[in-house]
Design a protein around this nucleic acid. Structure first.
Lengths: 240, 240
DNA sequence: TCACCATCTTTGGCATACAATATCTAACAG
DNA sequence: CTGTTAGATATTGTATGCCAAAGATGGTGA
């Protein structure tokens, strides 16, 4: 096994900007606080599989790679500990969190509930413009589907879910969703590589789009909740 | 206004042990890692209103009070930043997070959804022993209600909700619930001081207990979700 | 008397240095 | 030849110190 970074995930964000990276929430992009900046950087590295699950984080090595001293790096690591993206072992430092199959299932279960709630809120409160944008993304995604462009499909899929959550307008929900989703990002990407059940997922997205368009509150909640079950089926076969 | 700690909240955990404090998750109680220990301590201080919302956290002062150097204290603060219990201002350090009314509403909305999910899981998967324990707590709480013992009522109420979530068996849900609840703990305590609508809350708890006993999955989900609305009514009048 | 500016003090931010602990390796004994 | 122990090395954990930035306070000028 090599320790080269990114040999299973082919550089997700290869230069492009529009990637749905987990936005830093407390720091206005390199405005202040080195620790927060580094935390954002680490988040990206974890999510893009540059830092793989289970991997030890060598403080000195990583700090000189990022051109900061160990202190802000350590503080950044603590932030990620608070977000459950890294774990710390007693005197062995920090490792990137590697959720077990069961933990992934539980994460998806919670996320499904939250997305159901988001669907309810979005169907009720979203502006017509927001719904229009989501429908636009939906059709872009369909386009990627028919072209069998997995990467574009993946990105658009993520963007759609994120947009629906944001359309709900509940900041706490948005933040919680973002945080849980970050812990699942890698596994979602991996499972997306598989072609199985792709059709069903698209079918569900059609229904979701229709329910949103019709502002069917209960329907959208149910669909969003059920949709995650689909994800679990894909993921569970992918990681077994 | 004095800066004496704990003059609005009368020492919640006055020596007793059975208080539902937000359990540290990564460190086995003073096992390792000073930063985590300090983080737990800070969490308690925030939750017990020893550190009040909006209060600046003086690093030097607090560090010598806790007999640690600034470094582990700063790292502890970062952990709490990750948990959204404290915010950091650009160059002015850390302050205890003070959620706005709207943020409190949103927190309760999400929490209601999560507790609804927990109710569903608990009604389906809880062991008979777990349900028995919850019912026992329920009747203890009723006892406190008839004695008008607000503090005991509050603690038991918290314990019941926590137990239901735990009975669901989803660790991620438990953890997320704990984290969001910590951000609401103080305001919940304050609103509990008010006597208004106490009866309705007890009424709802009766229904919840009945649904749990009957393992009514859908019923319990609905009740748990609706129950939070009640909390919001109490809270919103308390903070207005 | 009030407003504005300068200086001074406090506090946070970061790096470096030191101490403690674990791991890895090698040697020695059984 | 294998298992255990001891020493060396590397890495993490904690403290201290220096520097910069923001806030407070006092003085001076209008």
């Amino acid at each position: 096994m090599s320790d080269r970074a990114s040999d299973s995930l082919p550089q997700l964000s290869d230069g492009e900007q529009g990637f749905p990276r987990p936005t830093p929430n407390d720091n206005e992009v390199d405005g202040r606080l080195l620790a927060s900046q580094v935390a954002s950087r680490l988040r990206d590295m974890i999510v893009q599989d540059e830092l793989k699950p289970g991997m030890r984080i060598r403080e000195r090595q990583l700090s000189e790679r990022l051109n900061v001293s160990r202190t802000p790096l350590r503080e950044a690591i603590r932030i990620l500990v608070g977000e459950r993206l890294v774990d710390t072992l007693p005197n062995r430092g920090a490792v990137v969190a590697s959720p077990s199959a069961e933990e992934i299932r539980q994460l998806l279960e919670v996320l499904g509930t939250l997305e159901g709630m988001a669907g309810r809120l979005a169907a009720r409160d979203a502006t017509d413009a927001q719904i229009g944008e989501i429908l636009a993304l939906h059709h872009e995604m369909l386009s990627a589907y028919y072209r069998k462009d997995k990467l574009a499909y993946f990105k658009l899929n993520q963007a759609i879910h994120k947009s629906i959550v944001e359309a709900g307008g509940n900041q706490v929900l948005i933040e919680t969703h973002r945080q849980l989703n970050a812990r699942l990002f890698r596994v979602r990407y991996v499972s997306n590589q598989q072609s199985g059940r792709w059709h069903e997922a698209v079918e569900q997205h059609e229904q979701i789009a229709a329910a949103l368009k019709a502002r069917d509150v209960d329907g959208l909640e149910q669909l969003m909740r059920a949709h995650i079950g689909q994800t679990w089926l894909k993921v569970s076969t992918a990681i077994s």
